[in-house]
Design a protein around this nucleic acid. Sequence first.
DNA 1: CTGAAAGCGCTTACAG
DNA 2: CTGAAAGCGCTTACAG
Lengths: 346, 346
Amino acid sequence: MAKSTGRARPVIKDVAKLAGVSAPTVSRYLNGTVNVTEDKRRRIAEAIKELGYEPSVVARALSNREMDSVVVFAANPDAFSTSATNHGVEAAARKRRFLVTIVSLDESDMDSVEARVRMGLAVRPAGVIVYEYGWAGVEALKRLPRDIPTVVVGGGFGDGDYQVINAERDGGRWMTMHLLDMGHSTVFHVAWDKETGDNSRTNGWRDALEERGIEVPEPVLVPAGDLRRAVAAGKALGRRKDVTAVFAASDEIAIAVMKGLRESGRKVPQDVSVVGFDDMDFDAMWEPPLTSYTQNFHEMGERAFRMLYDQVRAKRAGHEPPQSQIEVVQGKPRLRASETSPRTRA
Amino acid sequence: MAKSTGRARPVIKDVAKLAGVSAPTVSRYLNGTVNVTEDKRRRIAEAIKELGYEPSVVARALSNREMDSVVVFAANPDAFSTSATNHGVEAAARKRRFLVTIVSLDESDMDSVEARVRMGLAVRPAGVIVYEYGWAGVEALKRLPRDIPTVVVGGGFGDGDYQVINAERDGGRWMTMHLLDMGHSTVFHVAWDKETGDNSRTNGWRDALEERGIEVPEPVLVPAGDLRRAVAAGKALGRRKDVTAVFAASDEIAIAVMKGLRESGRKVPQDVSVVGFDDMDFDAMWEPPLTSYTQNFHEMGERAFRMLYDQVRAKRAGHEPPQSQIEVVQGKPRLRASETSPRTRA
DNA sequence: CTGAAAGCGCTTACAG
DNA sequence: CTGAAAGCGCTTACAG
């Protein structure tokens, strides 16, 4: 603890001198690469403590040609999914003493993706994690060198050799089935217009309808993020007497749709059942409490890091990379009170 | 673009050779520290392009004794305020080609703060930004060396020499005054029990009441994050006929309180006016649309970085540090429909 | 098991 | 303006 030397920050040589050994020995002690005599171990440990020594990750990185760090490329930096996943990555990384650097991708400025990828790679991270919650992730992925350990989070099956995916499609199917099981003859669907492909909630909705042999109505697509348009969509749906159930692709949409439905004189859930997706904090507070589907983004982040770490370790040890793999993180429905069986027509 | 050499990643020497100059000259060209002949500039530029050269930030960091990066210490990593501020920091940092590393502080594990600070500092960042949205930030701040450029975001006046603060107290005062101006004889207040001190919404509420010479009722404190307890608080308030207006310390709380109020048979806003704070996305969707107060976290993040950068630049140039300063980022009220003048008692 | 030497890829005095 | 040399703080063959 005591700052015994005049140096602002002790370096490995200071430790070595104080412990009466050479710098490489301290390095070996620190990294456990080779055995060090018990006696010396003790003296080194003491010296480290005495000086408050912390190895320079920068010097280590230069020597190792890479840093103990992971860079995360993420679009939609303000989205809940992004921030929760970041947190999961960071928690797992910390256990391995890896640093995480977030480089956000601006969906509105494609040209910059190239520059941002270069910038992120300039620290020579041990690996990268790319979120495919939005399409900018796909662009970033294309620009990554093949030899850097990479994990893709989200997106469709097979977007990456190593991937952590959420069961979006399954979830969409489940929610739709749930409504069907309650007796609704069909389920309408409202979603943002930017969909993420194969593994989407929208496809899950389609799956359920098709499985039941129900004709799939046209999904209602709304410009991404435009709550007002989502309200309008709800209102339009409300005017059609054949809609008794809607599966909204997100809680935000569900809430907007409910508002629109009410504006057109329909009650939720008495006249129309509405379910959402994402299980946001507020859902339980809603009137009526919104039925939704939880995804565990934090868990996805943790798994993504662990999957990456396995690759990094193999690479450093000179082993073959682990087998390509896709982990699917299941979500689960949270039933509340925004849906009910359709009532018999008056 | 073309990878003309066999090297995986070109280094400064490759550029130098191709351009027919020495490595230091390339370095000077890159950093603009000294003039380089026009002729050589051109050749160097071409070589860089040809090789796709990107300087190693790690090597540069080792030489400079610090990295072009900033570490952010942030508690409550999942909170909207945290993620929006991060995004602002990152956007501003990118313009200066600084990397940002997020180290999250776990409020439940105080012992680790020390370790996390050390870990964050191990990359020798040029500076650090600490969020005082929660108390863990205060702990981190105590453990930072005095000589590293630092800016504090949030918290109370004077928590740091360089600080970007939100006008929380002003906002609380404004919202309370607004209710008073509508004719309510007093305003009740519900908040999480962990308050951030001087510059708090709660204090703003108190200010307004005191300015008007109104006796300040006991604020209702609820365990942080416990929405259910907040609903209960709303319910309890609803049973008291003297409550006609409540200022909730956050939108989450406002929503829970509204729910509780309704459970006790009171209508919002007809019987009781409720206003929140934070202006979350959903507020406009609420029934009734929730009146709230916006804070510009993104802007706070940007300003924090710029303030930090000024310190870093001064330090690197060997100048005196800029004058200690506190920037206050104003928020603004968003009036919607969750409050109204009290109606005359029936 | 351990030390002296060389190297990672930059930058910065030091000469010229 | 520009090059040769030394140094930033580690790690890793190479000998012993």
